[in-house]
């Protein structure tokens, strides 16, 4: 395939090449814009961050190369193991809760006959809220005293929970916030995938006597397999970078129960003024995320998504 595509151009005359370039000039122009944007706002900061993780800098004088010192500093930090554990736990919980809920919701929305547009809007509404506003809203919901959730539990004659104030519930509480904030986007993507499934498949399944569960299991899931896989990987990459929830709701507490890698990175860079340490953590996180991104690229290439 590649050989046949390239071979003819090798025999083109200089005049033909010039014509080809001229014809594609517009495309090159647009490409340059994108390349410049990526170079300055994506690749340069990335390279700078990698360099930073091997340097000690005060942003005034020239940086000093310190080898692996920054990595040693952060790995010897008592919060380091907790941060990775919490990040992994958050990612896992976000998959269990945050991955399944939008899919189920999309199936329900797809099955509805009335008020579809209204309900889609309602589901998508949290995405439109600025994250800080959404998080602070939950701060009130989680208040162990007059908070909404404990009021609801009280109405059901159930004991209130400490939510953010307990080491056993704090992380789950953050997952709930994160799920609520992001479920609109996932739901809409799943909904689009569901609507592309030919209705004949469902009709055939119904004729074969399949109930709702069997239709979902044998038609919906196989038909949306690729999008489910891509969303899974994208969600892993996104949730591993969790920052705003612990930053605004718990400050990493109680007892480091919600310290995440991104939060620790922030602490190093901005609270402790150690950008090298922050950079080292960032590089570690980037490598882990690159593994998942590579899987995503492989999956999307193989399945031509």
């Amino acid at each position: 395939m590649t050989t046949t595509a390239v071979a003819p151009s090798r025999h083109r005359t200089p005049g033909a090449v010039r014509r080809l370039v001229r014809r594609n000039l517009t495309a090159y122009g647009f490409l340059c814009g994108a390349l410049i944007c990526f170079a300055f706002f994506s690749w340069y900061p990335m390279v700078r961050e990698i360099l930073l993780s091997f340097q000690k800098t005060n942003f005034v004088g020239p940086p000093e190369w310190v080898g692996l010192d920054n990595f040693r500093t952060v790995t010897e930090d008592s919060a380091f193991a907790a941060a990775w554990y919490n990040t992994a736990a958050f990612t896992l919980l976000a998959l269990v809760i945050g991955y399944a809920v939008p899919f189920v919701l999309a199936i329900v929305l797809n099955e509805l006959r009335h008020a579809k547009a209204y309900l889609r809007f309602v589901v998508y509404l949290p995405v439109m809220l600025p994250p800080a506003v959404a998080v602070l809203l939950f701060k009130w919901f989680y208040d162990p005293g007059p908070g909404l959730f404990n009021q609801i539990l009280a109405l059901a004659h159930l004991p209130g929970l400490s939510w953010l104030d307990s080491t056993s519930t704090a992380l789950v509480s953050l997952v709930i916030v994160s799920t609520w904030m992001n479920l609109g986007t996932g739901t809409l993507i799943y909904l689009a995938a569901l609507q592309s499934i030919p209705s004949e498949l469902y009709e055939a399944a119904e004729l074969d006597g399949a109930g709702l569960f069997k239709r979902v299991w044998h038609v919906t899931i196989p038909q949306t397999k690729l999008i489910l896989l891509v969303m899974l990987l994208l969600q892993i990459v996104a949730t591993m970078q969790v920052f705003i929830e612990p930053y605004l709701l718990t400050g990493g507490g109680p007892e480091n129960a919600t310290v995440t890698v991104a939060y620790l990175m922030y602490q190093y860079a901005f609270s402790f003024g150690n950008f090298g340490g922050g950079g080292a953590l960032g590089l570690m996180l980037m490598i882990v995320l690159m593994v998942f991104s590579a899987i995503y690229l492989r999956v999307s290439r193989d399945d031509k998504i």
Binding site: S166, T167, G253, P254, E255
Partner: peptide
């Protein structure tokens, strides 16, 4: 100070939440 305060948040939050 900030590094030490970050460490001391743990005992403070522990006695107030547990």
């Amino acid at each position: 100070a900030q590094e030490i305060y970050a460490v001391l948040d743990t005992p403070m939050s522990a006695v107030l939440t547990r």
